[in-house]
């Protein structure tokens, strides 16, 4: 077999990082999907770009955690602006998302031209944040990703039932006395963190695919939130590893689009062939919702 690189420590490092990124994206994407905020993730990841560049311009550092703090802050600002614009004007969410997405990204690109004039710019490699370059992950980056991922998983475990009722029925949650606003802020912050983690491997342009596709795939296989979250995390991790593997194998490819394609492939397969909900079954038996896959 020609898969010697599977034994290569660098590759295993990068694959671990990508798997974690995919898993975190899938888990938080589940909540985004169920709360109909799939596209907020897209706006937030685009909005992260000016934060990355500004963090570099202000500190001159190219440390991943530092750049990602900048990314998180500006992604958060983007989400906040979407809420502000939709609440305080006649602009609907779709236009507000498009606005924030394109303007923040434009500002980021304009700032990038400033950053590229710095002598250290080439080393900083800010361009990798556009389409992702998992291969550039360093051991300390992966360590940092693992810590943040652990924190995210822990918080979701601790606030599991609160997030569940928030996603299903926010009015009921508020009536029960749950601090809905605080929970919403916490969940959005976790999503921002997931996006920030994803930027290195998937890039600002395609990070939303790692949120949406694994969750949409997982939804087709189960009717329980518990299983859906686990499955989405698994699909996300699979897409991460597979994408990194393929882009290494083929070469000359940014990892982001390959990971996004793997996630999309999993989603497409699930939409077509998942037991019960798979579209392939409905095409075969148009009238028969009951006639279904093995577990139906």
């Amino acid at each position: 077999m020609g898969f010697v690189f599977l034994m290569d420590p660098t590759f295993r490092l990068v694959a671990t990082g990508s798997a974690l990124i995919g898993a975190v994206g899938g888990v938080l994407g589940t909540f985004a999907l169920l709360r109909r905020q799939s596209l907020l993730g897209d706006a937030m990841s685009h909005a992260a770009l000016p934060g990355i560049v500004l963090a570099f311009l202000l500190t001159g550092s190219r440390d991943l955690p530092l750049l990602l703090v900048g990314a998180s802050l500006s992604a958060w600002l983007g989400a906040l602006l979407v809420v502000l614009i939709t609440h305080r004007s006649r602009i609907r969410p779709d236009a507000a998302l498009g606005l924030v997405l394109s303007v923040f990204f434009g500002i980021g690109m304009a700032l990038l031209t400033v950053a590229q004039r710095r002598p250290t710019a080439a080393q900083a490699g800010l361009e990798r944040f556009l389409f992702g370059q998992a291969a550039l992950m360093l051991p300390q980056d992966v360590e940092w990703i693992a810590r943040t991922a652990a924190l995210i998983f822990l918080l979701i475990f601790l606030f599991w039932k609160e997030f569940k009722v928030l996603a299903f029925d926010p009015a009921f949650a508020a009536a029960m006395g749950l601090p809905v606003m605080a929970l919403d802020i916490l969940l959005t912050t976790l999503t921002v963190l997931a996006i920030a983690l994803g930027l290195q491997a998937v890039g600002v342009v395609l990070t939303s695919a790692v949120l949406v596709a694994p969750a949409a795939a997982a939804r087709q296989w189960t009717n329980r939130l518990e299983r859906m979250v686990v499955l989405a995390g698994g699909f996300g991790a699979l897409a991460g590893v597979l994408g990194t593997l393929l882009s290494t194998w083929i070469g000359r490819l940014p990892t982001g689009p390959v990971i996004a394609l793997c996630a999309s492939g999993i989603a497409l397969f699930s939409l077509l062939f998942a037991p019960r909900r798979g579209l392939a079954w409905t095409v075969k038996s148009p009238g028969g919702k009951r006639r279904a896959g093995p577990s139906g």
Binding site: A167, F168, A171, F172, T222, N223, R224, L225, R227
Partner: peptide, 16 residues
Amino acid sequence: AVDWDFPATVLDVVLM
């Protein structure tokens, strides 16, 4: 007010 396509069983909802 809610999305009935939410991945939950009857018992899940009542447990809320």
